[in-house]
Simulated scan of single mutants.
Amino acid sequence: MTTAALPYWRLSSFYLFYFALLGSTAPFLALYFDHLGFSSARIGELVAIPMLMRCVAPNIWGWLGDYSGRRLAIVRFGAVCTLLSFSLIFVSKTYAWLAMVMALHAFFWHAVLPQFEVITLAHLKGQTSRYSQVRLWGSIGFIITVVALGRLFEWLSLDIYPLALVLIMAGIVISSLWVPNAEPVQSERIAGDGFLQQLRSPGVLAFYACVGLMQLSHGPYYTFLTLHLEQLGYSRGLIGMLWALGVVAEVLMFLGMSKILARFSVRRVLLASFLLAALRWVLLGSFAEYVWVLLFAQVLHAATFGSFHAAAIQFVQRSFGARQQGQGQALYAALAGTGGALGALYSGYSWNALGATFTFSIASLAAFAAAVIIATRMQEDRP
């Protein structure tokens, strides 16, 4: 397939806006709730709610996408409903109302990405090594947003934060209307197998368990890193650039992933990603006051997200047939959501009581446990 046949910019624009939204929530959502006066426990709960919805929503929408084949319609519907439901945040800022808004908009937001991943891979027509070249624009959207908002919140009040999110959500809606549809080609090798049968293939369940552990380990990072660095004396502008540094490293990793996956097996890439994650959380929890350590820890985002996600997407794509791709991607999203929600909850309850070092140490143990599972339960695959 030639580059001209791939709707590269249409696919890339969607990833840019979708992950721009993540770039506006991951570093700043907890900061906004802190600005509203909520305790660390309540912040952990509010951040966990969208992740809990990620456990349920992708499976519902994934089944519907596989059953109907109308994946792009689901993407567009989910994007519009995400915008409309989040706009309810302007009505009230009470805990109960914010919890409802977090749950409602997340139910639709998490319908979008797993189905879009299937559409993207269908456009690539089996050339999964090119996935990273499209997906890197999501990382660029994250970088632009996190740096811009970091600087903006040095000048203006966090009261404008919900408006910034609504504008980005409108970009997701517009970009979804620009994307052409595509359906995965039926695979003769596993087309006749059901989803549960494919799920019981060697190493698949072990992989999904490790997805949950990896996202659990990210709980303190996504929930409290910004507050952690503020308490250490870093400015919001610098914090935004530190978040961006991690995603720049992720982008560079995505650019090289096709060569890496051509040389090394998915199992080895995943194993390295988990071990480096375990190291990263120790550094952030215990040594973040040293700038050079903090810079190195953020560069490790190339492994804890970049190489992990690219290898995981390739593993899911090759492990399921065309009619089960949506469910395979949805289960990946759901278990990531389960792990992320548990990570946000435990870190919310332990942050003030036990401190940053202990909280990040739990994260490191979770990542190391995933490395052990991959090393012992996943079979070596051909690169």
Rank of each mutant, 00 (worst) to 15 (best):
224 F>V: 03
334 A>R: 09
61 W>N: 05
84 L>V: 14
307 S>V: 02
207 F>E: 05
316 V>T: 13
118 V>R: 03
158 L>D: 05
237 G>C: 08
359 T>W: 06
119 I>C: 07
200 R>P: 04
206 A>G: 09
303 A>Q: 06
322 A>N: 02
57 A>S: 15
326 G>F: 01
322 A>I: 03
245 L>T: 12
372 V>N: 09
307 S>G: 07
178 W>L: 10
132 S>T: 06
70 R>I: 00
115 Q>E: 08
4 A>H: 03
27 P>Q: 00
40 S>A: 15
232 L>D: 00
163 L>N: 05
325 Q>M: 10
346 Y>P: 14
361 S>N: 13
40 S>V: 01
218 H>M: 12
303 A>F: 15
269 V>Q: 03
352 N>S: 14
102 M>G: 03
104 L>I: 09
217 S>I: 00
338 T>C: 15
382 R>Q: 13
159 D>G: 09
358 F>H: 11
140 I>N: 03
362 I>A: 09
73 A>F: 14
259 K>V: 10
356 A>Q: 10
56 V>E: 13
247 V>C: 04
282 V>R: 03
17 F>C: 14
317 Q>G: 02
257 M>W: 01
360 F>N: 00
142 F>N: 01
239 I>D: 05
320 F>S: 03
32 Y>W: 14
325 Q>C: 06
189 R>D: 11
312 A>M: 09
191 A>L: 08
33 F>L: 12
250 E>K: 12
30 A>C: 05
367 A>R: 08
135 R>S: 10
355 G>S: 10
377 R>K: 14
181 N>I: 01
359 T>V: 09
335 L>P: 06
170 A>T: 10
370 A>P: 01
373 I>V: 15
245 L>K: 02
365 L>E: 04
336 A>E: 11
355 G>Y: 11
268 R>A: 07
104 L>H: 08
364 S>Y: 09
102 M>D: 04
148 A>G: 10
48 A>R: 03
206 A>T: 03
339 G>W: 12
105 H>Q: 13
352 N>E: 15
221 Y>D: 01
349 Y>L: 13
54 R>P: 07
22 L>S: 10
130 R>N: 09
244 A>I: 07
222 Y>G: 00
307 S>M: 12
382 R>G: 08
5 A>L: 11
176 S>K: 07
210 C>E: 10
216 L>G: 02
368 F>H: 02
52 L>M: 15
172 I>N: 11
356 A>F: 01
304 T>G: 01
81 C>L: 15
316 V>P: 10
95 Y>K: 02
113 L>A: 08
216 L>A: 14
218 H>G: 02
379 Q>Y: 07
317 Q>F: 04
139 S>K: 06
218 H>Y: 12
226 T>Q: 02
324 Q>N: 15
302 A>F: 07
373 I>L: 15
